[in-house]
Design a protein around this nucleic acid. Sequence first.
DNA 1: ATTAAATTGTTATAATATAACATTTTGTAA
DNA 2: TTACAAAATGTTATATTATAACAATTTAAT
Lengths: 131, 131
Amino acid sequence: MQNLSKNQQIIFDLIDKSPEPLKAYSILFSVQKRGIKAPLQVYRALDKLVEIGKIHKIESRNAFIACQNSSCQISKATAFSICESCEKVTEINNSNLSKYLTCFKDKNGMKYNKYNLEFFGLCKKCVSKKS
Amino acid sequence: MQNLSKNQQIIFDLIDKSPEPLKAYSILFSVQKRGIKAPLQVYRALDKLVEIGKIHKIESRNAFIACQNSSCQISKATAFSICESCEKVTEINNSNLSKYLTCFKDKNGMKYNKYNLEFFGLCKKCVSKKS
DNA sequence: ATTAAATTGTTATAATATAACATTTTGTAA
DNA sequence: TTACAAAATGTTATATTATAACAATTTAAT
Ligand SMILES: [Zn+2]
Ligand SMILES: [Zn+2]
Ligand SMILES: [Zn+2]
Ligand SMILES: [Zn+2]
């Protein structure tokens, strides 16, 4: 794995330190003091980081999170749990699940080489708050 | 299931007839001749149609497709296959898969009440074209 | 008839993402 | 070490997707 470029490193560090998924323009705002001034600079770094599997995009939220697995095969098999109340997102690392989905074949005979799964619900904290 | 309103019906008909997922602004363009002139009118109808399970949003494409199952429990359990070459999208109706995912519990103990799964690959047509 | 909920209409604006082009840096191989 | 190609950067403008705010109208149940 090659080193990250300057912009990629700045943006990865920010996402990696964040306890929650970050949106592109909130990233842009945060890194402006470090010389990254335009949306494209952010999006290009994000694209690359996604491509090499260091971060993932949470599609339903248009937000980015650092890979918590180090075992996602370059973002080809991703699963997340999302709390609909506090918006906490956790990457799921479950070998049974990933095996099941990686091997899954539908009737149409199509061969899949990638999947993304998002679960929604209430995290433990939010469940207890409501009761 | 109550009847759809005028705007909802117009927009559902369009999506239902389309062989491919439709994007909001392409829908807007198509229904302007029928008196729907503003983005919000489209988005409101889309929101409602998603809510009642008549259509689904393909999150990775920001596009909408009619439900092909009639058995999606109000969009609480959705799975799609997406061809990365021709962008054909098919809703997967596989009881084994839906059972597995509906019952899935991760170590974190979080209880899920909804999921969305998107598979990516090459459809049969596109596979044979490349060989 | 009364009323609440849902839907519609409308203008403006926010948020997300890419096009196009020029320049610089980095890695690699003659 | 020079020459070349690939990757990354910088910059301006613009395209695409989505929501805020407010007023009016329609629908459906008492
Ligand atoms: Zn990961
Ligand atoms: Zn929560
Ligand atoms: Zn469906
Ligand atoms: Zn295809």
